[in-house]
């Protein structure tokens, strides 16, 4: 099962976990990416995320399908939030379940690593004294 969503509301980590539970799966691994309150010593006030929605959904689905094909995951849930997100809040939740734990760990790592490379989502950090698009410049 694959469940990919991009939402502009707070993410429900319990819901993501529940969706991945399966009596045939002995391992459920979750990753929650949250907003840090500082970057290189500067206080972060908030992040603003935007995305190219149809392409981001397609790319996330590709990653989930690959996590199943390459790592042997049974179920992959990937929810990403967009809009304004404050420190401490979750920006992304990934839950993977698999009959055995090794595949679940590998698939979860694969999913978050690939998401950060290919999914067209962008975040802008807002500090007390400025703002910038993350990773845009060398």
């Amino acid at each position: 099962m694959v469940d990919v969503k991009i939402l502009d509301t707070p993410l429900d980590t319990d819901l993501c976990l529940r969706q991945a539970y399966d009596q045939q799966c002995g391992g459920v691994v979750s990753f929650v990416g949250t907003v840090r309150n500082e970057t290189q010593g500067r206080k972060v006030r908030r992040l603003e995320f935007e995305c190219y929605l149809p392409m981001a959904q397609k790319e996330m689905r590709k990653i989930a399908d690959e996590a199943i094909a390459k790592c042997g995951a049974a179920h992959v849930v990937m929810h990403h939030r967009i809009g304004t997100i404050y420190p401490g809040e979750a920006a992304v939740v990934i839950v993977v379940s698999s009959p055995h734990r090794t595949a679940a760990f590998e698939a979860c790592q694969y999913a978050i690593d690939q998401l950060k490379i290919t999914v067209p989502i962008w975040k802008k950090e807002f500090f007390e004294d400025g703002e910038h698009w993350v990773s845009a410049h060398p």
Binding site: M55, K58, W122
Partner: peptide, 29 residues
């Protein structure tokens, strides 16, 4: 560049009415 919601190769030719997107470095997660 993305063409019709897929990453494009440099050699890929573009047709009229294609939807092109400029994709700067992504930073999701």
């Amino acid at each position: 560049l993305a063409v019709n919601e897929e990453y494009a190769t440099e050699e890929q030719s573009i047709k009229a009415d294609d939807e092109i997107a400029l994709i700067p470095p992504v930073s999701g997660g």
